[in-house]
């Protein structure tokens, strides 16, 4: 009983003083409550019986609601402050861009603030010249944001993203910028990345435009498909999609690439009408390994 009660009280107080660092809070708590605990214990001792228990329960509940209220109000306040902070930072990033650049020491601090509040310091306006000639920071900034969005979503989509979705992600990130980001802007920004090699590109699948951010050389989807084809020697698009749960564009792109690389062959002649992708070059039973296990060899 005593233990439970002091446990609850302790929990409440820890909740309320949550803003203290944990170790600090704990030592502080212990210091104060070594004193408070004793009277509490005495109180329980003095009031045995049902009424005592009920009273303790009620008190406990009250403490708890109070604690929750405090925490809630505080979180709300913080959220509000963060919003103000963000807004001001965004304004400053735009208004004083060049002044900030000139002060190395302050620039570092400004970046830190932006990063901590989740503000994107890249928010140049497109402006007339950028629109007309494609010069200025706008398209470069957009390029960085586009790559970033691709990187962030890569675990979910394997480096393939619909241009529309990409635009939406980037636009959300740039919400302060006055002009909206269009798909055309995205295409131009991606065009600026050409110098960095050909891995990053836009291509069309059906009526959709997809952006590929992983170059073929680093794409592990192909490995997974090869792995799937181990047993039978072939896969179909539907099989891959069912087994891996990839979005349709991703499956097609991977199979197309394997075809183009000369690793797969198409067979449309199957009675079920599904196109099969054969992998004749892989030694069917997969016994080829560095350890050099003996095997029967591929069936040809």
């Amino acid at each position: 009983m005593e233990r439970a009660a002091s446990g609850i009280t302790r929990k409440f107080v820890l909740l309320a003083i949550g803003r203290l660092p944990e170790e600090l809070g704990r030592s502080w708590f212990d210091k104060c409550f070594r004193g408070l605990d004793r009277p509490l214990r005495m109180a329980f001792r003095r009031r045995p019986g049902i009424s005592g228990l009920q009273g303790a329960t009620a008190a406990r509940a009250q403490y708890k609601t109070l604690g929750e209220d405090v925490a809630k109000v505080r979180t709300e306040q913080m959220t509000e402050q963060l919003a103000t902070f963000k807004k001001s930072l965004e304004d400053f990033a735009q208004k004083y861009k060049n002044d900030i650049k000139k002060q190395p020491a302050f620039r570092a601090q400004f970046h830190e603030m932006c990063a901590k509040c989740g503000v994107d310091p890249l928010a140049s306006n497109k402006g007339f010249w950028a629109e007309l000639l494609g010069i200025g920071d706008f398209y470069y900034e957009l390029g960085v944001q586009i790559v970033e969005a691709c990187l962030a979503t890569r675990p979910h989509n394997g480096g393939l993203i619909d241009l529309q979705d990409l635009r939406a992600l980037v636009a959300k990130k740039r919400r302060t910028a006055k002009e909206p980001v269009t798909e055309d802007d995205c295409i131009r920004a991606i065009g600026k990345l050409k110098a960095l090699g050909s891995g990053f590109e836009i291509f069309t699948v059906g009526s959709r435009r997809l952006v590929r951010s992983v170059p073929t050389e680093l794409n592990r989807d192909h490995n997974e498909i090869l792995e799937m084809a181990q047993g039978k020697g072939f896969v179909t698009a539907a099989e891959v999609q069912a087994q891996k749960g990839w979005p349709p564009g991703r499956v097609e792109d991977a199979l197309e690439t394997l075809l183009r690389e000369g690793l797969a062959m198409i067979d449309d002649g199957d009675p079920d009408g599904q196109r099969r992708f054969w992998f004749p070059c892989s030694s069917g039973d997969g016994n080829l390994s560095i350890e050099g296990q003996l095997g029967e060899g591929p069936i040809r």
Binding site: L218, E261, L263, F279, C281, S282, L288, S289, I290, G295
Partner: peptide, 25 residues
């Protein structure tokens, strides 16, 4: 130099599986 490798050679997909690299690489 493995038995299979000597008989049938290795393709890009064989190498990819054995070395754990993407096939294109």
């Amino acid at each position: 130099k493995t038995p299979d490798g000597t008989h049938f050679g290795i393709s890009a997909s064989d190498a990819a599986r054995a070395l754990g690299l993407p096939p294109a690489l």
